[in-house]
Each structure stands twice: as structure tokens, then as C-alpha cells.
């Protein structure tokens, strides 16, 4: 695998300014991160540690308070660069559009011709398993299906870096695994770099080349774990021995952090 750097965070911190009498919140960092071109990187960490904030900074949705963000050798500083696609933690499907119109949204904005839109939307809906619901409105779908609509809407734009913030949060464990397989397939086919934020350690262990474990807020990388999987992996490795080692290692690191995030200071066992 090449080690060309695709995106880089350099000493990045993010402090949310004080609002309405609340003190400022130091949400993230300082963190350093090199995303290698074409790799599958996951971030795991306790709730509220700054994972979503990290994604916002990387996508250019929020400027870092300190430090620098680079994507494809250009400085991202609160400006969304071309070639990044993001699926957010919250449901962001457009309730006034059908599933297929949702998926086509970005392409229509970019003025892509109708035949090409058709082709890409069909492919993306097939990929997320929503072909039969192309004409449905999001209100008629479950939470997990709506999240998949958002994934399709991002995929059609063929981003070179895909950011996914707990995209499978609303799915049951089995569908999660299958979506994970699909995601791996997509990753292999497109060659895109993927940054996945998740709170499921097994998901991170199964999907990723590398996993960054984050501390409680303000989030910092405690350690980065290399899984050493081959590119054509899938959910069947859940049965293997290495898998248990990786999740065990992650939990060892995160247990006390999670307790800290919950306010149980002395609970380190």
C-alpha cells in the first residue's frame, strides 16, 4: 500500500466559543493525523469526545481554533474543498424529495446530464439496497433506511475522501455487518479514502486498516492501531482470532476514557 498522505491534521484544536452564559467548550485536540491515500481509517471514542467536531474541521465546515488542515496539498480552513463527501450523524435526508431525487440532488446541482444522473443514481440506490424505494419519501422509510439515502446522495458525487459519522448507528447488528461488507466493496471499487466514525469497536476492528482511539473530551488520539487486514476482507473474519485481539486492545484503552466521559473519575479499574 502506498503511504502518500491524502489529508492531514496538524496540531488541530477546536474550542466552541462561549454562548448565552455558557463557558467556551474545548472539544478537540490538539491532534495530529495523516490519512493515507486509499486507506480505511476509523475513529472510535467515548460519547462527546469530539469525533463529530473532528469531522467538521476536516470537511472544512468549521475552522480549527489552532493548527492546520490539509487536503490533497491544499489548506482547508473552514472552506469545504472539492472531492470530499460527508454523511452526518443526524438524519439529513430531504423530506420533500423522493429517495431518487434525494440521491440525484448533488448531480442536478452540478449540471450533470440526465442519462448520467440516471446511471449513477441507479448504481448508488442498488448499493445501499433502496432500489425498490426509489419513489418513496423519506417519511415512509425507517431511520436506518434514511441514513442510507444520505449515503447514496454522497456516493453519486464520487468523492475521493468519504467521511462517515456513525452512518450505521440506526441499524440492527446484522444489517450493520452486511452494510459493512458493502462499504468495504465500495471502498475497494472506488479506491477512495474512507474515514469512519463509529462507537462500535467490532465494526472499527473489522472494517479498518487503522483505528484511532480517542480520549474523553477534549479528544486526543491515545493510540493508533494497525489491523493488518488485506484489502479483500469481509465480515467473515469476525470468526478469526486476530479480531478478538484488536477489539480487546481497543476496549482496554477506551474503558477508562469512557468512564471519564461519563463523569466516573475514580472508576479506573
Amino acid at each position: 500500500m502506498s503511504h502518500e498522505v491524502h489529508a492531514r491534521l496538524e496540531g488541530v484544536t477546536r474550542v466552541y466559543p462561549a454562548v448565552a452564559g455558557n463557558p467556551p467548550v474545548h472539544a478537540l485536540g490538539p491532534i495530529d493525523l495523516d490519512l493515507r491515500k486509499g486507506e480505511f481509517f476509523s475513529i472510535v471514542g467515548p460519547s462527546g469526545c469530539g469525533k463529530s467536531t473532528c469531522m467538521d474541521v476536516l470537511a472544512g465546515l468549521a475552522a480549527p481554533t489552532e493548527g492546520n488542515v490539509w487536503f490533497e496539498d491544499k489548506r482547508v480552513h473552514g472552506n469545504v474543498p472539492d472531492g470530499i463527501g460527508a454523511v452526518f450523524q443526524e438524519d439529513a435526508s430531504f423530506p420533500w424529495l423522493t429517495v431518487e431525487d434525494n440521491a440525484a440532488f448533488g448531480l442536478r446541482r452540478a449540471g450533470v446530464d440526465a442519462a448520467e444522473i440516471r446511471r449513477r443514481v441507479d448504481y448508488a440506490l442498488g448499493f445501499v439496497g433502496l432500489k425498490d424505494f426509489a419513489k418513496a419519501y423519506p417519511a415512509q422509510l425507517s431511520g436506518g433506511m434514511r441514513q442510507r439515502v444520505c449515503i447514496a446522495r454522497t456516493l453519486v458525487l464520487q468523492p475521493r475522501l468519504i467521511l462517515l459519522d456513525e452512518p450505521f448507528g440506526a441499524l440492527d447488528a446484522q444489517t450493520r455487518l452486511l452494510m459493512g461488507d458493502e462499504l468495504l466493496k465500495l471502498w475497494r471499487e472506488t479506491g477512495a479514502t474512507v474515514l469512519l466514525i463509529t462507537h462500535a469497536l467490532d465494526e472499527a476492528a473489522m472494517l479498518s486498516d487503522r483505528i484511532g482511539a480517542m480520549s474523553a473530551r477534549p479528544g486526543r488520539f491515545l493510540e493508533t492501531v494497525e489491523t493488518g487486514w488485506s484489502r479483500d476482507r469481509d465480515s467473515r473474519m469476525l470468526e478469526g482470532e486476530t479480531f478478538g485481539h484488536i477489539t480487546g486492545r481497543l476496549w482496554q484503552m477506551l474503558r477508562s476514557e469512557s468512564q471519564r466521559a461519563m463523569g466516573h473519575e475514580g472508576g479506573v479499574a
Binding site: D56, V80, I84, F88, E90, A92, F94, W96, F105
Partner: peptide, 29 residues
């Protein structure tokens, strides 16, 4: 309108007016 919709608009490189017309207005109708 949830904050995330404005993030989506920015991911699609939409300006203030486009966001109002294509995202905020239909959501709020």
C-alpha cells in the same frame, strides 16, 4: 430546520441564497 441541513448545503458548495431557496424554504414549507 436542524443544523445538519446547513452542513449538507455547505458540502454541496451552496451559497446563502441557494441554501435559502433549495433547502431552507422547502424544509420550512
Amino acid at each position: 430546520i436542524p443544523r445538519v441541513y446547513r452542513k449538507v448545503a455547505r458540502m454541496h458548495h451552496m451559497g446563502r441564497a441557494k441554501t435559502a431557496l433549495l433547502i431552507e424554504l422547502p424544509y420550512a414549507i
